[in-house]
Design a protein around this nucleic acid. Structure first.
Length: 270
DNA sequence: AGCCAGGACAAGT
DNA sequence: ACTTGTCATGGC
């Protein structure tokens, strides 16, 4: 089954290449394919429309939620446009959507992301899935479940070349498996309590926790502060985000991140 | 060769 | 509460 939306609503490049996910890849024809919940999905731009394919029959609801298709981003943009810099970012970076990804995958992925660059993050995750994930098809593996990983040790992760992050992965897996980390419970917590809970995992600090809260639990008031956002904040918002961003700091963050990193990187004085 | 990459953490002020 | 060195790996 297919879902078709306008490219203004869902820009594949902006959505998949803005650093919120690491398992979507673009081929030579500009077709994106990703593996989500053990299923291969393709997203293809055709003119000014975008076609999402690979969705199971009657599975529309889950996928509309994954792609956040029922949210009105023009409403977000309108609110944020009260601020001049955010207005520029929104106008330039239309078509971004915040995906609602699986918590465990997001947690492990952003643990791997720390002090790392996007190509290498993708490589480590790819090797991780290949080694531990269920095989879906030729060269295609699901992200492994925590249960599947139970009992792994640091030495099992050596070939991933994840470096010092290997022991963080081991700790995250064990805390998920023994119930110290319970995703349903975290989902129900307030932003601050959920963040503290996630930070009980070794190697998870504010930034990684906020990424998980934004990209997996869709808590739009989470505001991950990476090196780029810190530069932007110092330059434009030394006293914090403007009031119009209240409650949707995470959306503002994505627009700013994409705008300053991919559209207008030179407006930042490093 | 040295610096940086969507950081975390401990140790030192 | 803020600053600094360290952590493992790879690309430039």
């Amino acid at each position: 089954m297919k879902i078709t939306v306008s490219v203004k609503e869902l820009c594949p490049a902006r959505t998949f290449l803005c650093g919120q996910c690491f398992r979507w890849h673009e081929d030579e024809q500009g077709k994106f394919s990703g593996i989500v919940s053990g299923r291969e999905i393709t997203v293809t731009q055709k003119g000014d429309m975008v076609e999402i394919d690979g969705i199971p029959e009657n599975g529309g609801k889950f996928w509309r939620e994954y792609f956040d298709l029922d949210a009105d981003y023009s409403e977000y943009a309108l609110r944020l446009s009260e601020d001049e810099t955010l207005k520029k970012a929104c106008q330039a970076s239309w078509g971004i959507r915040i995906l609602k990804q699986e918590p465990f995958e997001t947690l492990i992925s952003f643990i791997i992301s720390q002090n790392n660059n996007i190509p290498r993050i993708s490589g480590i995750i790819s090797r991780f899935c290949q080694k531990f994930g269920a095989k879906i098809s030729e060269n295609s593996y699901a992200f492994p479940t925590a249960q599947r990983l139970s009992g792994i040790e640091e030495s099992d992760l050596a070939e991933l070349r994840a470096g010092f992050r290997a022991r963080y992965i081991v700790d995250a897996v064990s805390k998920v498996n023994n119930g110290e980390i319970n995703f349903e419970e975290i989902d129900a917590l307030s932003l601050d309590l959920a963040r503290e809970k996630l930070k009980s995992i070794v190697g998870v600090g504010d930034k990684v926790a906020d990424c998980v809260l934004l990209f997996a639990f869709h808590k739009l008031d989470a505001f991950p502060k990476d090196v780029w956002i810190k530069r932007i904040m110092n330059e434009y918002y030394p006293n914090g985000l403007p009031k119009c961003a209240e409650g949707i700091e995470g959306v503002a963050q994505q627009y700013l991140f994409d705008y300053f990193r991919n559209v207008q990187p030179f407006e930042i004085k490093v």
